[in-house]
Every structure is written in C-alpha cells, then in structure tokens.
Design a protein around this nucleic acid. Structure first.
Lengths: 336, 336
DNA sequence: AAATAATTTGAAATCGATTTCAGGATAAAT
DNA sequence: ATTTATCCTGAAATCGATTTCAAATTATTT
C-alpha cells in the first residue's frame, strides 16, 4: 500500500517516468524494459495513486450522478442507462444520494465539482435553473436529466409532460369521465406545473369546464396522495377519476379508496405516472405513463461524453423524449 | 474555475499557507488577515481543488459504497443508513453500482481504493472472502454488510439467516404444513446456504422427513422463482407451502400460481424474505422476513468511522442482528 | 564507417493544495 | 526597559503521479 512509483522504478532499475509510460502506454518503451517494470509492479503489488494521477492529468475518467432519492426506482433505471454507456466509454460512475434535501444536493455537487469528477449529471435536480447555470458558468461540466435547461453548455433530456398528460385525460374522457381529479406533486416542481398544464389543455379540447376544487396537492409521495384523497372525499365533491402526477400518489389513492370501500375502477378510475414496479403488482393493476428512463440516461451521457471529448458544443443539445400511456386495470372500464 | 490558492493569496496580500489556514481553520489567524482572505475568496469565487487537497492530506472524508444492484430496494435502505450516519460525522458517501457483475465490482473497488475514498463498504459482495481479505491486507480500509468476514480489521454486519429461516418453517408447520418447498437463491451465495440450513434444522426439530425434491433453485430473482415453480408443478409433487429465500422469487411463485389457478394461501402458502416494498401491495399480501436494513447500514458505518478515527481495532468487530417474521395474507391460513 | 534520423530513457518541472519549521511581531513577565 | 513566552505568518518541502525537454541510445542511410 505504501509502494509508490519511485519504489517500482528503483526495483526495476528505471526512472519513474518510464514506469508511468508502461502504466499508461503513453509512449513506446522497449519490450525488455516493459517486462522489467511489469515484473517489479507485480512483485511489489503496486497500485497507482489515483489522486496523484488525477491531480497531474487534470482528469478522472469519472462521472458523478446526483439523485434526489436513491430509493425511487424511477431514478435507478436512469442510472443504469448512464452507467452502461459510460462504462462502455471507459468512464466510471459514482452516485450521490441527496435524500430530497436541497442542501445535501448542493454539498454533493460541490464535492463532485471540486475536480473529483470530470462531469456531473443532475437527475431531477432540486436546485433552480439559475443555480445550475451559475455553476456551469464557473467552468464545470454539467448535464441534467428530467428538466429543460436554457444554457448552451448544459445537455439535457426530459419528457414532454404536457403531451402525455393530455393523453391521460383524453383516455379518461373517452371512457366516459368528465369530473377528473388532478393530484399534483409539490408546486415548485416544473413537472407538476407541466402535467397540470396538459390536464387543463385536454379539458379545454373537450370543452369540459375546469373545476379548480378538483386540483389537490400530494407532494409526489404516497402519504401526500392519501391525505389529498381524504380531503377530497370529506368535501363530498363529485368526481369519477383521478389523475395522479405519479404512481406513488396513486398508491395513496388506492389506500384511501380501500378505507372508504370505493371500488377501483368501477367507482373511481385511477391513472398514475412513472410505471413504478409496484404498479404492475397492485390490484387492480395501475394504469400509468411509462417514460423511457433507461434511454434518457443512456442518451444524455452519450452526448455528454461526446461533448467532453470534442471539447466543443454541438447544435443538438436538448432532447425531448416521448412517454407512453399504459392502460391497466385501474382505468380500463367504460363508464356509461 | 482556474483560480488557485496562490491567486487568492496574491489578491489578499498573504501567503498560500495563510489562505490554507483560514480555509481549514487549522491554526489561528488574525481576524484582520482572515477578513482579507475571505474577501479575496469571495471576490474571486475560489473553490479549493479537492484532488490536490486529498493528495496532500492523504484523506478525502469520503466513504465509497459498492452495491450489487442499485435497483434493489433492499440495498437502498442500507445505503440510507450509511449515508445518514456518515453525513452526521462529516463524511460524504459515494455509491457505485456493480450491476451484479463481479468484474464491475472489482473495478469499482479498485477505483475507490486507489485513494479516492478513505474506506469502502461492500454490500452483499460478489467476490469471495479471500479476495476481500487480500485487499484488506494491502492496507485498504474495508467493511462488509450482509456477510460474516473472518478478518480482524474488517467490521461486518449480517443477519442470522439460520434463525429466521427456522422461524419461517416453524410458522408454516404450526399452520399445518409438512410439505414445504424451499426456493433457494444461487448456490454460491452464503445466504442461500444458511437459509437452507435453517429450513433443514426446523424440519429436524419437528421430525419431518426431508424431501430433497422439494428444494429448487431460483437465483434470487422473479424469473427464477417462476421457472422453479413451473418445474415443481410439472413434476406433480405434493406440497402445500413455499418458502422463497427472497421476496423477488416469491413474486415469481405468485405468477406461476396465477397461471395454474392455484389460490394463495388456501391451496399454497407462500413466505418470502426481505420485506420488499411490493410485498405489502401485492394480493394477497406477502408474508416475509424483515431485516433491519437501515440499522445495519447505520451501525456498520458508525463502527467503521470509529475505527478509522481511533486508528485501532476494537474487540467488537462483527455484528449479528436479528430479523423478524411478518405474517401477512399469503400464509395466514390454518390448514386442517 | 560516418552521418543522420528515429527511438528510448531520465532529470526535473508540474498539478494545487497542506504542513513543517523558523523567523518576526506582539504580549506578558521581570 | 529588557527578557521571555506566545502568537502569526511565510518560505519551502511535500503528497505521488504525469509530462516536457534534452540526452543517450539504437536504427537507418549514405
């Protein structure tokens, strides 16, 4: 462990520079000296110090990823996409869990950007667009998944929230629903806003009057969805369908319905977003929107690495991908 | 971004050493010079280069965690435990996903150990005990969760597989089952072995003859559980309960039963292990064994950091924690 | 065989911080 | 006022690799 490159050099009877050369194949060395060096490395059990190497070469061949919550399967798939492409391109990936805390997100980003990694990918970041742009301006390499960013050096990939939201409402309306609850995530999230926008646009298309009392906030989590539904039930409002801005909240809807003896989908149709693993296993199976998570991660990191290698900024920097509605048991019911 | 400590020093009219001192509060500086330095840092937007810092100070205040699969919720909880305790102790945590590939696990471990982190935690490692010990012998600081390791410098935490396996079988026998299928994980895994051991011991306690044909392998995943059950059904064996060595395989059992029209729990009782999130949502709810995942992560990292700080090895290095059986719908049925 | 070109190699500089050691300034004690 | 102790500060060494530049070696050409 305390063996350094000079030790190897001494043992092999060469200079540290030569050892470095065989280590990195950076320039040619005689097969004879190479053999000597290899032998010394082997015998001493030498492992190069990555920190020293990174300091001198000013790169780490590592990409950092910051996720809001490592527990959410939604992010896991994106990470898989990132990891696989990065790995194929000789980059390693390290992941940091911000645990839904803005402060932690910032701290981990600082940790990563202080030259520990060559670039950082922010997944569904908690921080604002301005903060992200500021960091990029300082010269750090960033990329964002799950949000559109207006900055010509930050590649980003995101889904068309408005589009799929409209499709969800369309699907519900075509199954006879007109009074559709919208369970939004937390208000600051751009996703919440856009999904709501799609909901409103679809209503307008069908000339269905908008009832603001049918909008409730569920903070993107199960408990939030449950509480929101309880509030709605208590108000005795009339509605026949719920569009939850993610599957987690939809689970809360299921729970609230179970408590009140309301049958899904005959009495209440439910649609979520994310295609969580659970959505396929719960009874009834949950209709949801599937986003191409793996592809999003893969595509973005591909772009990012290209940009780093070419050291120039391409025309095509932002990617909007489509999601698809998956109709399952919770909404597959025609209301007369 | 290109601002270095010398630039700050120049601007503040002090030496780099002084800048370093105010940065790290390593020794006292006059409030006047401190103010000058702070001002210069602020105005230049200086961020210290972590790589240089780590190289000189020979530490990173960072702990690396390698997981076999970032998608498995089982590991996410452990990571949460690690992260929270580490964070409270001023350590950052970075996570690497080995994607169930031994080769990737080794590569990431190399990446981490080449001084990028102060210590690495291996969660349910794929590599052998010998390999782990060898790495420790080289002077790297390691810890392991999910496996007992015979090495006096490697803290580890693991559950008593034999004990809870016995409890599961006991529960089934007391509900009238005598022909209990055991679905094991992959054969090399020590967990598989120990869970089987508990199963066998319990049978012996109840004087139930062991039927080797009731042991099937399911590779710890859903597809494996499904295939294994199909094989068992096709053989036309008599059994009334299945003990799956994890919940994933139990999901496969559910699927196979649904296809054959076999009712759970009346025709077949099922028990899993892990207390996956899905186990609570599936119908019928799945009986399972809950392991104190969060605590395992938290306890281990606490121990690890203590050990690093004290720079000595404590007497109590290994922790065996207990798991609890959670009886739910899939086995809560008394057979006459 | 001598001159030239191409290839290997090593010495020393470098990456950007921390830390040691000694000197200078200030405060306390005589 | 002088001596002694304490506190601040800076110059230079250091962490462990890579990289540049020049020297030394080998290969090629005349």
């Amino acid at each position: 462990m305390d063996i350094k490159i000079v030790d190897v050099a001494a043992k092999a009877g060469v200079s540290p520079a030569t050892v470095s050369r065989v280590l990195n194949e950076s320039s040619s060395v005689t097969s004879k000296t190479k053999a000597k060096v290899m032998k010394a490395i082997e015998e001493l059990g030498y492992h190069p110090n990555a920190v020293a190497k990174n300091l001198r070469s000013q790169k780490s061949m590592t990409i950092g990823v910051i996720v809001p919550d490592i527990n959410a399967s939604y992010f896991a798939e994106i990470i898989k996409g990132i990891e696989n492409v990065a790995y194929a391109r000789k980059y390693k990936v390290i992941i940091c869990d911000a645990e839904n805390q803005k402060e932690k997100e910032a701290e981990y980003l600082t940790l990563l950007m202080n030259r520990t990694v060559d670039a950082a990918i922010l997944i569904a970041p908690l921080m604002s667009d301005e903060e992200i742009c500021q960091i990029s301006e300082k010269g750090y390499t960033l990329a964002v998944v799950g949000r559109y960013i207006e900055h010509d050096r930050i590649p980003c990939i995101y889904t068309d929230n408005v589009k799929f939201s409209k499709e969800v409402v369309q699907h519900l309306v075509e199954n006879g629903h007109r009074d559709i609850v919208f369970l939004s995530g937390y208000a600051e999230a751009i996703d919440s806003y856009e999904r709501l926008e799609g909901y409103l646009k679809a209503l307008r298309d069908y000339h269905i009057p908008f009832r603001p009392e049918l909008i409730e906030n569920g903070n993107f989590n199960e408990g939030g969805g449950y509480e929101a539904m309880k509030r709605l039930f208590d108000k005795n409002l009339h509605f026949t369908a719920v569009f939850a801005a993610n599957d987690e909240m939809a689970l809360g809807v299921y729970k609230a319905c179970a408590e009140r003896g309301i049958a899904i989908p005959s009495q209440l149709a439910v649609v979520g977003v994310d295609n969580n693993r659970i959505s396929k296993y719960i009874t009834p199976t949950l209709s949801t929107v599937n986003q191409p998570k793996y592809t999003m991660g893969a595509l973005l990191v591909e772009k990012l690495i290209d940009q780093m290698n070419e050291n120039q900024f391409h025309d095509k920097r932002t990617f909007k991908v489509d999601s698809e509605l998956i109709v399952r048991g919770s909404s597959n019911f025609r209301r007369e």
